[in-house]
Design a protein around this nucleic acid. Sequence first.
DNA 1: CGGGCAGTTGACCCCGCTCAAGCGCGGTGG
DNA 2: CCACCGCGCTTGAGCGGGGTCAACTGCCCG
Lengths: 232, 232
Amino acid sequence: MSYDKINKCENYSITNDIFKKITKEEYDILSYIKNCNKYDKGEVIYHEGSRITGVYCLDSGIVKHYKTGNDGKEQIIRFSKAGDIFGYRSVLSNETACTTAKVVEESSVCFIPATHFLKLIKENSDFALSLMQLSCKELGDANKYILDIAQKNVRERLAEILLLLHDNFGTNSDGDLNIFLTREELAGLVGTATESVIRLLSEFKKDKIIQLNKRKIKILNIKELRRISQDF
Amino acid sequence: MSYDKINKCENYSITNDIFKKITKEEYDILSYIKNCNKYDKGEVIYHEGSRITGVYCLDSGIVKHYKTGNDGKEQIIRFSKAGDIFGYRSVLSNETACTTAKVVEESSVCFIPATHFLKLIKENSDFALSLMQLSCKELGDANKYILDIAQKNVRERLAEILLLLHDNFGTNSDGDLNIFLTREELAGLVGTATESVIRLLSEFKKDKIIQLNKRKIKILNIKELRRISQDF
DNA sequence: CGGGCAGTTGACCCCGCTCAAGCGCGGTGG
DNA sequence: CCACCGCGCTTGAGCGGGGTCAACTGCCCG
């Protein structure tokens, strides 16, 4: 992280989502206190197990959150995109980070110290409530994920992940998904081996359900994908 | 749920855990407003997908929370025991219930209407904060569960579940786990087939790691169980 | 006494993991 | 400029963990 990258925050993230609930005054103080950095692709913002001293919000870019298994394999839990905040789980539960946060696409990240974040929660109950809603939503997502991994087969899960990426990141003008993951990352998301992802992607391609070009993925038949994913 | 079971709450649950943070006055109002019921084993408190109009706290008993897969198989997400609250996720995120809550052991359950619960959060920031800590802790647990199911084999997971039950429910004077699940429920917890659970339990028994007597399980070698579970 | 459910065991076999080999491509250095 | 290396991707072969099916037992309860 080079020095010239510091303090170039555009304030996007704190105008977004849950920060809608803070007052003008709180906003001004927050703008003053927060601290922004740019991170390159592949850089780690924090490691699983490390103590977190504040909350991060993403101005731009994509960050993946993963846990590492005993054999060193990454299990991706979720992604953050522009406007999302992360790290708040550790700050609130006062535990070490339960995931590693690594940059997938060059990101601009704001940092809000824990003390100030907790102060905001205490003083603004609307803010506290929307934060609670956020963590509850994440909890619901995690519960669904547990069911999926436990009961669906790899083919169904891959279909579901493609739909999830489609919903979260959308498509560019060419119709390609706006996120470019390695096969290994896809495997870490689905919870399977890289080779299995490759084989199934080839099948989907053969069946004209998706189109592949390197890491670009275009969904051609979203209905069929939904049918395969078995999600009603 | 028979009529004579209503309004016999002992107030245990609202003296517990997160309700420590409420004031005397709030406590008195809450005692007046809340509503208590007894539920027999097997009764459903609410179903996955139904709208929840308040938050539940458990005075006594055990409740399991599970999601149902497309093939009808239960995936148990977690248990509640005396002092725990549940249903708050749906109330806060304003979504339908993401799990079914079913009584495993006869339970005394208090109900707090959503409006009053939200009022408490708005007016008592300490209460809000400890509730947030609770949801964040659950989120951390869920994330760990995802990693486990995705990367560990059934043997490792079963060992881990036995340790988890041991930590959560403890043992009685005979050293048996204080929770009595069917083999099918254990399978739904581990995320596997009933037959696999049976076979592995037999193995653990053969290896003198556990003792079995119907649904009673006694852990004989907790170290070995920890080794098998691969959890560091 | 009979029906039904939980538990158990054996047989079978398929999904998906692992290992290995080969390919394409971009970067680096001689 | 080309040779080489390494990484990501792809494909094939093999096999084993664990899911499924079926049969049997024991037990509870009507």
